[in-house]
Nucleic acid binder design. Sequence first.
DNA 1: GTTTCGACCTAG
DNA 2: TCAGCTAGGTCGAAAC
Length: 765
Amino acid sequence: MVTIQGEKNPFIRNVFTLNSCAPIVATDVLEYYDEGNMLQAWCDFVVEADPDVIIGYNIANFDLPYLIDRATHLKVTRFPYFGRMKGTKVEVRDTRFSSKAYGTRENKATNIDGRIQFDMLQVMQRDHRLRSYTLNSVCAHFLGEQKEDVHHSIITDLHNGNPETRRRLAIYCLKDAYLPQRLMDKLMCLINYLEMARVTGVPFSYLLSRGQQIKVISQLYRKAIEQDFVIPARKNVEGMDEPFEGATVIDPEKGFYNVPITTLDFSSLYPSIMMAHNLCYTTLVDQREIENLNLKNDSDYIVTPYQSARFVKAEVRKGLLPSILEDLLSARKKAKADLKKETDPFKRAVLDGRQLALKISANSVYGFTGASAGQMPCLEISASVTAYGRQMIEQTKREVESRFTMENGYKHDAQVIYGDTDSVMVKFGVDNLVDAMKLGQEAAEYVTGKFLRPIKLEFEKVYFPYLLINKKRYAGLYWTNSEKWDKLDTKGIETVRRDNCLLVQNVIETCLRKVLIDRDVSGAVAYAKKIISDLLQNKIDMSQLVITKALSKSDYSAKQPHVELAERMRKRDPGSAPTLGDRVAYVIIKGTKGAAAYEKSEDPIYVLENNIPIDTSYYLENQLSKPLLRIFEPILGDKAESLLSGDHTRVVQHTTPTIGGLMKFAVIVPTCLGCKVPLTKNADTVVCRHCKPKLGELYQKQLSTVNEFETRFARLWTQCQRCQGSLHQDVLCSSRDCPIWYMRKKAQKDVQDASAVLEKFNYEW
DNA sequence: GTTTCGACCTAG
DNA sequence: TCAGCTAGGTCGAAAC
């Protein structure tokens, strides 16, 4: 039902994992035959166990509100009092959180005073960019194990079944509670969040319910009070919402470089600019103040490149922001030093995450000053920072290109081929790593000398070879020492984007590895051709073709595949349809000729259940071809075109639908049976407005298809989804010939895993 | 048929 | 008192 675990941290008494399915099952185990009694017993148990922290997966938006609702419905009036404040009722309220970084999301918030809630789903969504955030896929990603999802619609059946089905349900519930805890332990989420709360001085709950601003504000308050500053309650400045110019991205010299490309980076560029020039609210001065205080240019204050904004020097008054930044960066330095010493790969990942978090926190100080919708926007600071940054990257380019020349005794003229914000990629013209690194070191030191402390240009890595596709898009083999490369680094291209299908990601990744690591261009071409051929012959697993996109708005102006699908799913089953902020998974199915993509998107599970054919040519033309051409064109030139034509594209296998009526229905839905006009808005009417006057026979036909479909769909839970053989247990097929018989194996393993869990906690059933 | 623009996601 | 920033590529629907 619940798992309780003591934490190493002496301040946390225990951590409590919640899964609201559990009480339902517990009716058997605990002999509370009345659900109301059971809920009350659960509440009493929580009070007795007195947890400091309650964790779970999606507890904030599902389990807690569900329990409260259920108790209200059953009139268990004493239930909502499991917080630590006696007499304070636990209540659920709706909130809406909207941020550019985290997206817009409708949330429920439950107050359980005195107990921390830590929803691992929210943690995962904030800290990790994943394609899917189901417990299943997150665990597969981080723990290498998964549970089969139990569709909510069969939970009641499992419960009302027999001891065996209830046992199965109980195991699911236990795993549901156990996996979030494993996840939390392995990623050290709780510890990292506690540290973040300590560093920034915000209440723990803010870390999951609020954004970056509150953290900066909080640090600002801390520093301000030390120096007897009072922060104005709210600055109501008009015209603060005008945009300001950001960073420079140097025009790339696109192409494939089979020579070492040296990368030079400013470390923490924006924070170091703010520190170097003492930029802060407390150091900004205007003409009147300069006159009143008799300040002198250069010796007392500096003029920045943004509209001649003026700031006093640190000797006159040290700014609050620069000292906050110093704290954050020294903490990061320590994390990085620890990282160097640590050998355990997982702790390394954690330390790496921590230093990244501190870096993000430091960077968001600049973002905070530029947040026009925020509490203390100050364009003088943010725009000065970016203006300095632009000057610096330009100057760096000039310095490198003017010093490393044949005229100055070097073997070649250096050329900056690309740069973004705080980095420059330099082609020194040498053909080996040792020289490229030596020159990089020399250049970094040379350029650093041209700037104020603590601004520092660092040599970190060499790319060799390097494929520069466009601004913010490149790939290269990453070297930090000349003996062995570190990794294949890709930026911006399909391998790191989540809005492509896995097929594209894998093909591009493999081709890049073949080209950049194995130096086998013809092998890469052959591989790409093979995949294209497989795709057109339907040999690619559907899981490779699933595309996911975030549903980020509630009102869209243009039609899109994932938005239309979410709407259709809501009509089928409002309970399991994606909601605002969720990622919608879809595949593109065959439809009428010329139909738009948004008419051909479909839920992968639905497609699997109904054996709907996939539009493979869409995947070739709209998903694979352009990314492939982009990486092969710089290498092969015009010959790259041959990838997309030739014998391998000729063999096209047309799958014939195996379940006629079903198939027809599924494919026909998006268009009118009468005139083939796509049905856009009222797809549930099945016939378009144009045809409506003469429904008659056509409508009847459609209705019977609908009926047939619904009957068969309802039976799917007792039939195998592929071969229609009868299922003796849940979704396990009885026929070994069935193409999805492996599901049985998976499920068996699942039971074994869960049994091990049971044993560990000495549960008896 | 071409251009514009909204949406998504990423780089830094 | 909800909400870090700008630059930029790419895709596909809508507008022309």
